[in-house]
Nucleic acid binder design. Structure first.
Lengths: 109, 109
DNA sequence: AGGATACATTAGTGAATGCTAATTCATTAG
DNA sequence: CTAATGAATTAGCATTCACTAATGTATCCT
């Protein structure tokens, strides 16, 4: 069985549309500051900082402070629990599909 | 840009550990009733029914009533928004992920 | 130094969430 | 028919969540 905690963290973090949009924007741009992220986000700078904190806790972003700016970048490894989870349950479907295919082969030669 | 609504639905639905465990159990077993799902779930039958309602709304499961039992089975296509999202933003696992996605496409009738 | 800028943090608030307990509805068994 | 079983639904409750407004803490600029 997969460890549930990291998957839950990643999923819960990305489930919120605003926070996921922040993450997506960080992924698209190589590095981006908080003010830039706030611009056009529809929420306050404080809210953005809170979302960044969540993303950081989930291992989805990393920060690089430089002067009074803080540059955020995506951490690809952070998505790994999600990938593992999907890979794990995709395998189940493959097995079932293989069985179904064999079954159909037997029935209809 | 991807449509955010289905991804949000799927992610929010699978983010809860209890509900995700229910889904995982449905995936592993081919078909399963509500009493069976309730057994060893740690929550009430009512709670399970509520989780099943969420899963159904998200397109992740389908039901087959038979007598006074209702059999639930997984709907692989329900995970497609999640696959699409990861395919778009999880660029780093592109190859691994593309393979998995093609696999599911074969399964999908 | 003093003001402005970038970001983080806090308290407080309304809304949503997951749960239980109890009820309801439908179906099967004795 | 009556009792029991499977499942859905409801009301109520405690907790969590996302947000704002305000404040705090650096850092840069003149």
């Amino acid at each position: 069985m997969l460890d549930a905690a990291p998957i839950t963290n990643v999923m819960r973090t990305l489930a919120d549309p605003t926070r996921r949009a922040v993450f997506e924007r960080i992924v698209r741009t190589d590095e981006i500051t908080v003010v830039e992220l706030t611009r056009g986000s529809g929420v306050t700078q404080g809210a953005i900082s809170q979302h960044l904190k969540s993303l950081k806790r989930a291992g989805l972003v990393a920060e690089r402070p430089e002067g009074r700016n803080v540059y955020y970048r995506a951490r690809p490894e952070g998505l790994e629990p999600l990938f593992d989870w999907m890979n794990h349950y995709g395998v189940f479907w493959r097995e079932r599909f293989a069985n179904l295919r064999n079954l159909l082969k037997e029935i209809d030669p």
